[in-house]
Nucleic acid binder design. Structure first.
Length: 704
DNA sequence: CACTAGACTTGGAATAATTTTG
DNA sequence: CAAAATTATTCCAAGTCTAGTG
C-alpha cells in the first residue's frame, strides 16, 4: 500500500492520508495544514478537505466548531484565532512573553519605482553579464584592509559605526593541511589513445587520472562534462599532442589500476589499517585545534581541498572542469600578531598573505578555482548557539501575516508581489531565491520563480514545479487564498507595466530577495527570509512532539520522533535520491516476509497436530501452549518486519539529517527526550550531542 | 543605490565505521 | 564470523544575507 507514495513529490506527500490511516490532520505540518483548508468563501464547505484526503474525519479535527465560515484559511487578518495559529500562540506563551514590542505597521520603505526596477532587469538581459575577468578586481579586494563589523547590539545604535565585533584577542594555530602530492602510476599503467599506450607527463597523468576514476559515473554521459574536461585536458596536453580528442581515449587501464588499489587497501589486515589510521591522526593532530584566547577550540576544516574534477549538481555549466591544486601561494593566513607563522611543506613558497584580523573567525582562506565567487576557508567550530532563535515569536508572525495580507489589496504591484512571495515563504517554507549568474546551475527560489514554474489550476489550486537548491525538484500542489490566487494568475499573464509575460519571465518581476529582506529587517531586527524556514520547521516539530502518544517502549517513541522529523523534512523538501540497492533490499525484505509467513503457517499446522496429540512432520510433539507461544512470537516478528519495511520504503526519498542538524531547535528535542524518558543518544549521535551541549539542560516543559 | 565580496549556513552524496544478521 | 545493513562522518557544492564600495 505504501507504494502509492512512490510517484508523489515529497512536498505533496503530507496531503495524503497515511496508509494505516493514523495520519490524521494533526500530523500535518502546520503550513500544509492551513493550506489545505479550503476557504469556504465560495460556499464549498464540503470540499474543504485537504488535497488528496479521502477521509472526511481529517478535515474537522483541528478546526474550531465556531470558525468563521469565511476564514478557514486563517488568512484574513481580522481573525487570528483560527486553531492552528492559536495552537502556535499557546505553545509560545510560556517562552516568549517577553517578546519585543511588535513593530507591525511601522513605516515600510516606499515601494520602489517599478519602471526603474524593470529597467535594471532589462539591462541585465541585454548585456548578459560580461562578467569581467575577476582577477583584477579580486586582487584589489583581497588586499583591502579587513572590513569593519558592527556589533549586533540594537542599544548601541548611535555608536554603531565605530564598533567592530572582535572575535578574538589571541589566536594561534598550525595553518592548514595540504592533500598528499600526486603519486605517479606504475610505468605499465597507461591510458590508450586509438588503442595505443600514451606516455604522459606527471601533470598530464594527474589530470587524466581524475577523469579515469569517473568512468562509472553518470557524468560520463553528460556532453557538457566531457566538453569541459576536454577543454582543460587539452590545455595540459599542449599543442600538437598525439591525443586529439576524448573519443579515442581509453582510460580503462588507469581506472582498473585505481580500483585494484582500492581493493588492496580494503584487503589490508586489521593491524595495518589501524597503523595507517594512527599515522593519519598523528599527521592531523596539530591542525585539529586552535588556541583562541587561551581556550582550545576545534578547527572546523583544516584540510585544503585536493585537486579533482568539478562535479556540479544538476546542469551546472562548469561541470567537468579541472579544479587545480592549491598551494601556499594561494592561501591567506589569519593568525594572532605574536604567534609563529604556520609552516607548510613547500619550500621556496610563501603564503599569499598573513593577516591579523581580529574581526573574523577564519584561520585561512583561498579562492576556489572553479566557482570563483566563493572561497573555501577554515575557521573554528562555532560554539553553536542556535542561530535560528531569531526571536521570531508568535507576535511577530502575526504581525507579518497581517502585513502581507494587507499587501494583497495594495494598489502597488510590488507590494502585491511581496505579499504573495512572503505568503509562500511563510506557508511553504520556500527559500528566498537570489539572482544567479549565467555560469551557475539554473535553479530558483521563491523570488526567482518563473512563470513556467507555477500553474494556476481550478479551485484556487496552484501547482509549483521547479528546481531548487542543489537542483532538487520541488513539486507541490496547494490551495491558496483566493486573493493570492487571483494575483498569481495576474502575475503570470502580464508584468506591472502591462506587458505580456513569457514562460521564462520572472513571476515576481518587481522585487527580489534583497527587497524582501529589507522589508523584513525593518519589521524586526535580525529577521530575514530564511528565518521563516527555520521557524516553521521548529514550530512544526514542537507541535508534533507535544501530541499525545501511547508509545510505551523506547523504540516506539523513537519512531514517533522520526515521524515528526520526517514531517519537517517533507515540509522543507529535503529529498534524496533513492538509495542504491533500495529495490534489491526491499525485495529481500519481502522474501523474508514470505518466509516468515510460511513459518507461521507451519506453526499453525503444528498447532493443529499438537491439539490432536500428534507430532507434526518429523519434529517432536510440543505442547499446544508452547506452539501458541511460538506463533505469537512469530507474529510479533512479522509485524515488526512489516513496519520496518514500510518505514524504509516511506523514507527512501526523504533526508532526515538536514533538518535535525540545521533546522530544529535542539531544545525541543531534548525537552521531548526528558519528558518521554528517551535517552538523548537515541536521537542525537555523538557529534550532535557535542554540538548541542548548550541545549542539554533545557526544561522538560520547554515549548518553542 | 546598485553591486558584489566575504562570511556564514545549509545540502545530498560518498565513504567510513559500526552494528546486525544469517 | 563474514556479509549485509545501518549509522556516522566527510566531502564539497550551493544556498543566504549583509557590509562596504564606487
Amino acid at each position: 500500500m505504501s507504494d502509492s507514495d512512490d510517484d508523489m513529490p515529497l512536498a505533496q506527500r503530507t496531503h495524503k492520508p497515511a496508509a494505516e490511516g493514523s495520519d490524521d490532520e494533526d500530523d500535518r505540518p502546520l503550513a500544509h495544514r492551513q493550506f489545505t483548508h479550503k476557504p469556504s468563501a465560495n460556499g464549498n464547505t464540503a470540499a474543504a478537505a485537504p488535497i488528496g484526503t479521502t477521509t472526511s474525519t481529517a478535515v474537522s479535527v483541528s478546526r474550531p466548531a465556531t470558525a468563521d465560515a469565511t476564514d478557514l484559511n486563517g488568512w484574513d487578518s481580522s481573525s487570528s484565532d483560527d486553531i492552528p495559529l492559536a495552537q502556535r500562540k499557546k505553545a509560545l506563551v510560556a517562552q516568549k512573553s517577553q517578546a519585543t514590542q511588535p513593530k507591525g505597521q511601522k513605516a515600510k520603505p516606499v515601494a520602489k519605482d517599478i519602471a526603474n526596477r524593470e529597467g535594471k532587469r532589462k539591462r541585465q538581459d541585454e548585456a548578459p553579464k560580461g562578467r569581467q575577468a575577476p582577477s583584477k578586481k579580486t586582487k584589489a579586494l583581497d588586499d583591502a584592509p579587513p572590513r569593519k563589523k558592527r556589533v549586533a547590539n540594537p542599544a548601541s545604535q548611535g555608536a554603531k559605526e565605530e564598533d567592530k565585533e572582535i572575535k578574538w584577542e589571541k589566536l594561534r594555530h598550525a595553518g592548514v593541511l595540504f592533500p598528499p602530492e600526486y603519486v605517479r602510476l606504475p610505468s605499465n599503467v597507461k591510458m590508450l589513445y586509438d588503442g595505443q599506450p600514451v606516455d604522459l607527463t606527471e601533470e598530464q597523468e594527474e589530470v587524466a587520472q581524475m577523469f579515469a576514476i569517473m568512468k562509472e559515473t553518470d557524468y560520463m554521459r553528460k556532453q557538457l562534462f566531457l566538453d569541459n574536461f576536454w577543454n582543460d585536458f587539452k590545455k595540459v596536453l599542449g599543442k600538437d599532442h598525439v591525443i586529439k580528442g576524448l573519443k579515442k581515449c581509453d582510460f580503462t587501464p588507469m581506472y582498473d589500476h585505481a580500483m585494484a588499489e582500492r581493493e588492496k587497501k580494503k584487503a589490508l589486515s586489521k593491524e595495518e589499517k589501524l597503523a595507517i589510521k594512527q599515522k593519519k591522526e598523528a599527521d592531523e593532530a596539530k591542525f585539529k585545534y586552535a588556541q583562541v584566547d587561551g581556550r582550545t577550540e576545534q578547527v572546523g576544516n583544516f584540510r585544503v581541498e585536493p585537486p579533482g574534477l568539478f562535479r556540479g549538481r544538476g546542469e551546472h555549466p562548469r561541470m567537468g572542469k579541472v579544479k587545480s591544486r592549491i598551494y601556499p601561494r594561494d592561501i591567506t593566513i589569519n593568525i594572532g600578531m605574536e604567534e609563529p607563522i604556520p609552516e607548510h611543506p613547500y619550500p621556496g613558497q610563501q603564503w599569499k598573505e598573513v593577516r591579523h584580523d581580529k574581526t573574523v573567525t577564519w584561520l585561512a582562506f583561498w579562492k576556489e578555482p572553479i566557482v570563483r565567487r566563493t572561497s573555501s576557508m577554515c575557521g573554528w567550530l562555532p560554539n553553536s548557539t542556535f542561530k535560528s532563535d531569531s526571536g521570531l515569536g508568535q507576535n511577530h508572525v502575526d504581525d507579518i501575516r497581517k502585513m502581507y495580507e494587507k499587501d494583497w489589496d495594495s494598489k502597488d504591484t510590488q507590494r502585491q508581489q511581496m505579499g504573495c512571495a512572503l505568503y509562500f515563504i511563510d506557508q511553504l517554507a520556500l527559500r528566498a531565491g537570489h539572482e544567479k549568474d549565467e555560469d551557475e546551475a539554473d535553479t530558483v527560489g521563491c523570488c526567482t520563480l518563473k512563470v513556467e514554474n507555477v500553474e494556476c489550476m481550478p479551485g484556487d489550486h496552484i501547482k509549483f514545479d521547479f528546481l531548487g537548491k542543489d537542483s532538487i525538484r520541488y513539486e507541490n500542489e496547494v490551495v491558496v487564498h483566493p486573493k493570492v490566487y487571483a494575483l498569481i494568475k495576474k502575475f503570470c499573464q502580464h508584468s506591472a507595466n502591462n506587458k505580456p509575460k513569457k514562460p521564462e519571465d520572472q513571476l515576481f518581476e518587481t522585487m527580489d530577495a534583497t527587497d524582501l529582506n529589507k522589508t523584513l529587517k525593518d519589521l524586526m531586527d535580525g529577521l530575514s527570509v530564511k528565518v521563516f524556514r527555520t521557524y516553521n520547521a521548529s514550530i512544526t516539530l514542537d507541535r508534533l512532539l507535544w501530541e499525545p502518544s501511547d508509545s510505551e517502549v523506547i523504540d516506539a517513541k523513537k519512531a514517533d520522533y522520526d515521524r515528526a522529523n520526517k514531517e519537517v523534512a517533507i515540509l522543507c523538501n529535503h529529498q534524496r535520491a533513492v538509495p542504491k540497492g533500495h529495490a534489491g533490499q526491499m525485495e529481500k525484505l519481502s522474501e523474508r516476509m514470505h518466509k516468515l509467513n510460511e513459518e507461521l503457517l507451519e506453526l499453525q499446522h503444528e498447532l493443529k497436530a499438537s491439539e490432536k496429540g500428534k507430532a507434526y512432520g518429523d519434529k517432536k510433539r510440543r505442547d499446544p501452549e508452547r506452539v501458541h507461544a511460538a506463533i505469537d512470537a512469530k507474529k510479533a516478528v512479522i509485524a515488526k518486519a512489516e513496519i520496518n519495511a514500510r518505514v524504509k520504503d516511506d523514507l527512501k526519498t526523504v533526508a532526515l539529517g538536514t533538518s535535525k542538524i540545521n533546522y530544529l531547535d535542539p531544545r525541543i528535542t531534548v525537552a521531548w527526550c526528558k519528558r518521554n524518558e528517551v535517552p538523548m543518544e537515541k536521537i542525537f549521535n555523538k557529534t550532535l550531542v557535542t554540538k548541542f551541549f548548550w541545549a542539554m539542560d533545557v526544561d522538560p516543559d520547554f515549548k518553542f
